[in-house]
């Protein structure tokens, strides 16, 4: 019993750290249940992976977005772009938190009162009309996370065709993966972010460091065995970032669990991984 005390403390600290995860509350009991699904010899490694997760709670996300935004506005003003010439755009794609982040930013930074425009990337007519009206300025796309950058690029490429005038483009995002940075660079969209999630930071990524080769290979095989296509997350990105609102779909199945949570229960299931609650 006495040997279990450090373990208990570890569980308690982890549960406390992730306590505000929205789709499913992380509790001490839940965490213990989750780890017990795995073979005894893997548990310590898996707990290490959990410990290494970059977790962004509501306060973190809000702080990063506000700080980055204020810095960006100052930079744009210094370059001669008035605040009234800034269009904030939410990327409206399935499962995206972008609209919520834009609302958060709107309230925290008083964007509307400052005369900025707030639009959705699907509102092409609005984009066309507003950009024609203000005749050049800056476009700021807003989101909490970007993995491969594919969703962002598709929405942005479609939308940007309808811009009238010359606009500098920025992507205000709490956390962004290295892969998305390349996508942005191809379009010369500048990322304003709190952190760049490198491949090396992801224990289960092919180029990830932090795990012994044998452990890493065994757990990668385990993930792929559960879900051959998505075992390591979308695009095999195996990201190790979790945000309070939802776990990215680029996270490995080890953290997220399987769809419906039947085969494997996740510690950070995505909202759409959980069964639909009864009315």
């Amino acid at each position: 019993m006495i040997f279990e005390i450090p373990q208990v403390i570890r569980y308690a600290l982890l549960a406390w750290r992730f306590r505000d995860y929205r789709p499913k509350r992380v509790t001490f009991a839940g965490l213990r249940e989750w780890i017990r699904q795995f073979e005894r010899e893997d548990r310590s490694t898996i707990l290490n992976i959990l410990q290494s997760v970059s977790y962004l709670n509501e306060g973190d996300v809000s702080r990063i977005l506000v700080e980055q935004n204020e810095a960006l506005i100052r930079k744009l003003n210094a370059a001669g772009i008035a605040t009234k010439k800034i269009i904030y755009v939410s990327i409206d794609t399935a499962g995206s938190s972008s609209a919520v982040m834009l609302n958060l930013l709107r309230d925290a930074c008083h964007l509307e009162r400052r005369g900025c425009y707030l639009l959705d990337s699907r509102d092409v007519l609005g984009i066309s009309q507003v950009s024609a009206k203000i005749d050049g300025g800056a476009i700021v796309y807003v989101d909490d996370f970007s993995g491969s950058g594919g969703q962002f690029s598709r929405s942005r490429d479609f939308m940007s065709q309808h811009l009238v005038g010359t606009f500098a483009e920025f992507f205000l995002v709490a956390c962004i993966c290295e892969e998305a940075i390349y996508e942005l660079a191809e379009r010369q969209v500048e990322a304003c972010t709190g952190s760049i999630h490198a491949r090396a930071q992801r224990p289960l990524h092919e180029q990830g460091v932090g795990l012994a080769v044998g452990d890493k290979n065994r757990l990668r095989e385990y993930c792929l065995g559960i879900d051959g296509r998505g075992g390591l997350g979308y695009g095999a990105l195996a990201t190790n970032v979790v945000l309070y609102r939802n776990c990215p779909n680029t996270a490995p199945v080890l953290l997220r669990g399987t769809k419906g949570q039947e085969e494997l229960v996740g510690i950070f299931p995505r909202t759409d991984d959980l069964p639909v609650p009864a009315l």
Partner: peptide, 11 residues
């Protein structure tokens, strides 16, 4: 090319 205001890049 022209310089995009607010960015260091040229379009």
């Amino acid at each position: 090319v022209y310089q995009i205001r607010g960015q260091t890049k040229y379009a």
